[in-house]
């Protein structure tokens, strides 16, 4: 954040348009770069569902928190999936319990 952004924020003014331009560009290029003729939003949705189906066979996913998106850096586009795991199918709360104490345990059960 620049001094100008800070002042604008404090005054409740709009941020400079160059920031908006940069953000919009990054988004639109992430999609352009994966060749939208072959990977449409429909296909992306379908792929997301199939990925979730596969993962859900093995672990219980927190569906509310799932995020699947395309991210681009240095002209490389990656499919990034964030799939928070609630528990394994066998019922054991394995993952976080091992690392931390019972406070975490309660969080997970909720």
């Amino acid at each position: 954040m620049t001094l100008r952004d800070l002042i604008n924020k404090l005054l409740g003014r709009e941020t400079a348009s160059a920031n908006t331009a940069r953000e919009r560009l990054q988004l639109v290029l992430a999609h352009d770069r994966v060749d939208m003729s072959s990977l449409t939003t429909d296909l992306l949705d379908k792929m997301r569902k199939e990925i979730l189906d596969v993962v859900a066979k093995y672990v219980e996913i927190d569906f509310e928190e799932v995020a699947v998106s395309l991210e681009t850096e240095d002209r490389m586009t990656a499919l990034v999936a964030n799939l928070p795991i609630k528990r394994t199918i066998s019922g054991e709360i394995q993952f976080k319990k091992d690392v931390k104490n019972d406070k975490n345990d309660k969080d997970i059960k909720k």
């Binding site: 620049t2 400079a16 348009s17 160059a18 940069r22 560009l25 290029l29 240095d74």
Partner: peptide, 18 residues
């Protein structure tokens, strides 16, 4: 315009296009 951040900067464009 670049100074007042109302135009994409040289660094922005170069970084985006790599």
């Amino acid at each position: 315009m670049m100074a007042s951040q109302e135009m994409l900067s040289i660094e922005d464009v170069q970084e985006i296009l790599s």
